[in-house]
Amino acid sequence: MLTILERINQLAKKAKEVGLTEIEKMEQTDLRKEYLQIFRGSVQSILLNATVYDPNGDDVTPEKLRKEQARVTKQ
């Protein structure tokens, strides 16, 4: 993922300085989509492994999250 981010930053810098070719613009768009897909996947993974507790220590994980966690566990 770091190589993707480095390349996105290189293209952004070049775009500001001299501009990008059409091929570079397409590459930048594809890299951004790939990065967002990876990022969203990692956030989803974190959320699916989360449990929510109130200040009293009671489990108050939303039912929707529990159902999704159970669905993923079955797979």
Rank of each mutant, 00 (worst) to 15 (best):
D30W: 11
L2V: 06
K64P: 00
D30E: 15
E17Q: 09
A70V: 12
Q28Y: 14
D59V: 03
L11Q: 14
K74Y: 03
M1T: 11
T21R: 00
I8D: 02
I23R: 03
R71F: 01
R7P: 03
V18D: 12
L65V: 00
K74T: 05
Q75Y: 15
A70L: 11
K13L: 12
K14M: 11
T3N: 04
L31G: 02
S45E: 15
T21W: 06
I46K: 04
E24R: 05
T29V: 07
Q44T: 08
I8W: 06
Y53H: 14
A15E: 13
T51D: 09
V43T: 11
I8Q: 04
P62Y: 06
L36C: 15
D30C: 13
R66E: 04
K67F: 00
T61S: 02
A50L: 07
E27G: 05
M1W: 07
T73C: 01
K33M: 10
T3E: 06
K14T: 03
K13H: 07
D58G: 01
V52S: 03
S45P: 08
K16R: 09
T73S: 06
T21V: 04
I46V: 06
L48G: 01
Q44W: 05
K13C: 02
V18G: 02
T61L: 01
L5I: 12
Q69S: 01
E6D: 04
R32E: 12
V60T: 04
D54I: 02
S45H: 15
E68W: 04
M1H: 09
K25W: 12
L65T: 05
N56E: 13
K74C: 05
V52G: 00
K14F: 05
E22F: 12
L36I: 14
D59R: 00
M1A: 14
E22Q: 14
R7Q: 10
E27S: 09
G41S: 12
E63R: 13
V18K: 15
L36F: 15
E63V: 13
E27Q: 07
R66F: 01
E68I: 08
Q69R: 10
M26F: 09
V60E: 01
L5Q: 13
P55G: 01
E34G: 02
T61I: 02
I38P: 01
K64E: 07
L11V: 11
E24T: 06
L20F: 03
T3Y: 00
T29F: 11
L65R: 08
M1Y: 13
V43Q: 14
E24L: 10
E68V: 02
D58H: 06
L48Y: 11
D58R: 08
